[in-house]
Nucleic acid binder design. Structure first.
Length: 277
DNA sequence: AAGAATGTTACATG
DNA sequence: ACATGTAACATTCT
């Protein structure tokens, strides 16, 4: 569910809520499969007594750097979220992991579909090495994107969704970026002209910045929907131009938005603005 | 009640 | 080797 702006919002919220410098008294695991690379027993033993030194994001991963050269790396997948609550609060049945902090608060990992994963690693770079560049980094330029695109001959949408190509984009923001750049999702990556590549570069950064500005995209009130650790929804949904707007008029040309399937994912386009050449 | 859902990955096929 | 398709993970919402 969460893409770069949602994950960054979660990291920012946890920092603002004062999670850094807090100690972890103990951990409880309710869904063992959430722990990806060690046993539940190892996880609980390793995490207890450590202090949270820093929090950061890489792609759609959250990295908790802990004391003693250990990092807790979390991927929320479709429905993962963090909740901060008093230690005497009742835990929802979808809470899969619970971290008891030394200030009488609980950092709960809530995940209805149970696809989320946590890793304990000594060096996060090992786990994150497969990721492509950060799209909002200063070092990521349009020229850089152009070279990356011509190195493949793939459909542009699945390529942008590929985390080893570029990190942090998912189904919503890719659809939005392609609409913004007027590019059909099935266009071959190496066939875009310079103008289209520059438009795509600007569009990717624009839609991500919009998501960040409005603290993420929440599409409804359901269990799987995006919610930040302080239990707030993001406000970016109102600025979406195509995602989940099937049948509604295009903001540029009034043509009706249509839905198609690309790379097994639902895809929303304006059939008039985004033509397959 | 069938189908879809903000993600990733292993495996199969062309 | 590379591009693409399928299934799996598990649950809720429409």
């Amino acid at each position: 569910m969460p893409e770069l702006p949602e994950v960054q919002t979660i990291v920012d919220d946890l920092q603002a809520a004062g999670v850094m410098r807090r100690g972890i008294m103990r951990a409880r695991v309710f869904w063992p499969n959430t722990i990806a690379n060690v046993t539940v027993k190892q996880f609980c033993r390793q995490v207890a007594g450590r202090k949270i030194l820093s929090l950061s994001r890489r792609g759609k991963y959250i990295v908790f750097r802990l004391s003693g050269s250990l990092s807790l790396v979390v991927h929320l997948r479709m429905t993962g979220r963090f909740q901060l609550m008093p230690s005497d609060a009742e835990l929802c049945c979808h809470v899969q992991i619970m971290l008891l902090l030394d200030d009488k608060r609980v950092l709960a990992f809530h995940d209805t579909r149970k696809f989320g994963r946590m890793y304990l690693v000594s060096d996060p770079l090992d786990l994150l090495a497969h990721l492509g560049p950060e799209p909002l980094d200063n070092t990521f330029t349009a020229g850089h994107l152009a070279r990356m695109l011509t190195a493949h001959r793939r459909q542009i949408k699945p390529l942008l969704m590929d985390q080893s190509f570029i990190a942090g984009l998912g189904n919503i923001y890719v659809d939005e970026a392609l609409w913004d750049a007027r590019i059909h999702p099935l266009r071959r990556s190496d066939m875009l002209n310079d103008e289209e590549v520059r438009a795509l570069y600007r569009a990717i950064r624009r839609v991500l910045r919009s998501g960040l500005k409005y603290k993420g995209t929440s599409l409804g009130e359901g269990q799987g929907n995006f919610q930040s650790p302080v239990l707030e929804h993001g406000n970016n949904a109102q600025y979406l131009k195509v995602y989940q707007r099937t049948g509604e008029p295009c903001n540029r040309c009034q043509a009706r938005i249509i839905k198609l399937i690309v790379g097994q994912r639902s895809t929303h386009i304006c059939p008039s603005c985004q033509v397959l050449k």
